[in-house]
Design a protein around this nucleic acid. Structure first.
Lengths: 143, 143
DNA sequence: TGAAAAGTGGGGAATTGTGGTGAAAATAAG
DNA sequence: CTTATTTTCACCACAATTCCCCACTTTTCA
């Protein structure tokens, strides 16, 4: 499972090294998608397949499920590793994530998240401030 | 399966390069037709066969399913690839899609969608606005 | 402290995307 | 029916991008 937080640089070609610890879990391929809060999600391919099937099965007749499927599927990208363990993030995903030079790669159990470092910092500050409130909200989840 | 977003140019003869990643899935032929929201749908031939059967089976009694089936069936056109991996979009489909110089080709699992770039942008802006509800939508899918 | 592994950068070959030209086919005109 | 004109298609050539490999630096771990 994916755990931990790593700081890596995005080079001029849009390449990003995936932390070596994670690579073993991604040998069957990986898919990057638009995530929440302006970060990117990276799933192992088989995990992604499950999600994609659900998306593809949504009724094409309804405007908002159609829109949703478009954002998630067209917003995704299958990524390959080069011999150095790097992936290439397509231009439209770098834009979506506001990614500059430095990125943070965070392990979230079944997926990785890719953040621009600045956004990650401010997000952390914000939420650590509020963590008291958040804890209460978690009460609803019976945790 | 088709995923991702690609920006390609439509030349003066109505030719459009299909992203190389997708060509392997279309070696048995492809069919383009009128899609929803002013884009074109491109299906692998076998997928198209399935869809066409379903369309033909729609209740002929209902005015709007009839109209929908007519649009997709009558609007369809088989396309071939030239040696550079391009297809020719017939004039009536280019017109239907309001296609100008630049087109976006989006992968939606079992089909490709072909959009005029400007329309794609405004569609995305529109829906990404709303998809702050994206999280809730995820909930509905139990993801 | 030394060796191995991980991360970063860059150069060059191969692939992909784009534009164009000329032959063949289809259509229209004489 | 022949000829002229337009359209379509196959092929060629260039430009841009991507990918693959090599080299260097930094970090990790014994």
């Amino acid at each position: 499972m994916f755990i931990g937080e790593y700081k890596h640089t995005l080079d001029s070609k849009g390449r990003l090294a995936v932390p070596a610890k994670f690579r073993a879990l991604l040998t069957d391929g990986a898919v990057v998608t638009k995530g929440l809060d302006n970060c990117l999600f990276l799933y192992p391919k088989n995990e992604w397949e499950l999600l994609a099937k659900k998306l593809a099965a949504l009724p094409i007749s309804k405007a908002n499920t159609r829109a949703f499927a478009r954002m998630m599927l067209a917003g995704a990208s299958a990524v390959d590793f080069d011999s150095q363990g790097r992936i290439v993030l397509p231009e439209y995903l770098r834009e979506f994530g506001h990614l500059q030079k430095t990125a943070v790669i965070a392990g979230l159990y079944d997926r990785l998240e890719i953040w621009d470092e600045a956004l990650w910092q401010s997000y952390k500050n914000e939420t650590e401030q509020k963590s008291g409130d958040i804890a209460e909200a978690l009460g609803e989840l019976e945790i």
